[in-house]
Computed example of a mutant assay.
Amino acid sequence: MKTSALVLPAVVILGAFFVVPLIWVVILSFLGAGPTGEVQHAFTLGNYVRFLTDSYYVNDLLLRTIRLAAIATVFSVVIGYLGAFVIARAAPTTQTWMILLVMLPLWVNLVVRTLSLMVVLGRNGPVNQILVGLGITARPLPLLYNETAVVIGMVQVAVPFVVLSVFGVLQAIPRQLEQAAMTVGATPLAAFRRVTLPLSVPGILAGSVLAFGINVESFVVPILLGGGRVRFMSVAAYETATVSNNLPFAATIGVILLIVTMVMLGVYQWAVRSAGRPATAIQAA
């Protein structure tokens, strides 16, 4: 009884500020909109039919959002894993400072971080100055207002989350396992590939799904680094609701984006169950 009383406020807050609005968005996506944007309280599948039968919404919005989010996730996982591995192998006192450096960007407003990245990637920014100064390129590269800029922006947002996800798993892997593999003839690289890497798969999967979820729902990065040229689902939902004043169709875009995220979570759960046999991986090595 006491436990229920303690949990009740959290349940009420969660229901009032998350579950109820989410249910309303789903209901709203099945309603129509009048010529001036007023919501018509009549059930319809027209919003979903409009979205799924229009190549602009499917190809230029949905598939582009998934593609760029997936590319950014791959880079985030590779960079994040390398960072987490270096931190896990560092001395305990050094680990503390390195973790603080990883978390430091999370304490800075995302808009400020993205604006700073715009300066770095700009035509006269340090990246282009270095490339031109070293003779790698004859003129500044167009690193802003394109898909490349958006991917770079999403990577810098997601990498800290991947590092923290993988670091916890790497810390839990006994170093003696690698040492045991090397005592029977394995090289350090072979020991990593056959012991450490398989055992760190749960952290990689957790970091991947976290990075993908952050990237696919990115809003600030596509607006600032994409410059309106790189269309994203989240931006389209915002503009549909505010500029076009079509709340039902904006809700439809949001629900479809939510479905994509839930599918990714389902794939993650399946992958975790499939990779949840570390002993098998060690035996196979």
Rank of each mutant, 00 (worst) to 15 (best):
A138Q: 14
Y48V: 05
V39R: 02
A186R: 06
L121S: 01
Q269T: 14
L68Q: 06
S29V: 12
I71K: 08
V169W: 00
I71H: 11
L225H: 11
L189Q: 13
E178M: 00
N59C: 12
V39S: 02
F17H: 07
L68K: 02
A172R: 08
A275P: 04
N215Y: 06
I253P: 05
T96A: 04
L199P: 02
I282Y: 01
L210A: 06
G254T: 07
P222I: 05
A186H: 05
A72D: 03
G266E: 00
L117H: 04
V243Q: 02
V49S: 01
S76R: 09
G46S: 13
F85Y: 07
G227S: 14
Y145E: 15
D60V: 12
L28P: 05
L31M: 14
A10W: 14
I214V: 09
T148K: 15
I136N: 10
V19A: 11
S55F: 06
I23W: 14
G213Y: 11
N146M: 04
R113C: 06
S116G: 13
L106E: 06
R123H: 10
A211W: 13
Q95S: 10
L199I: 08
I259N: 07
N146C: 04
I71E: 14
G266I: 07
L134V: 10
A10D: 15
L144S: 02
V166C: 00
A211F: 07
T240S: 02
V243G: 04
G227L: 05
L143M: 12
L106C: 09
W107D: 01
V155A: 05
S55D: 14
A42E: 14
V127W: 15
P140F: 11
P21S: 12
S55T: 11
G32D: 15
G34D: 09
Q156T: 01
A172P: 08
W97R: 15
L131D: 13
T96D: 03
Q179L: 03
L121H: 09
T137F: 11
V26Y: 10
S116Y: 09
A237Y: 07
R123G: 02
Y57D: 15
L45P: 09
L8H: 02
S200M: 06
E178V: 03
A69G: 07
T242P: 10
A181F: 03
P92I: 02
V243S: 02
A271Y: 12
I259F: 04
T148L: 12
A190E: 14
G153F: 08
R139L: 12
A237W: 10
I282A: 01
M103P: 13
A191K: 05
G254C: 08
G254N: 01
V159L: 10
I282S: 10
I23M: 13
R89F: 09
V111M: 08
V20Y: 03
L144Q: 07
G276Y: 03
I223F: 04
T73C: 09
R175D: 00
A241G: 01
V127M: 10
D60H: 08
A72W: 03
L14S: 14
M233Y: 04
P9L: 00
M103F: 10
D54H: 13
L62V: 15
G133A: 15
M154V: 07
I13F: 11
L199F: 00
I130K: 07
S244V: 12
L82G: 09
L199D: 01
V162C: 09
L121I: 04
I204M: 12
T187I: 08
V127Q: 06
P140L: 13
N124Y: 14
Q283C: 05
V209D: 06
V159K: 07
L177R: 00
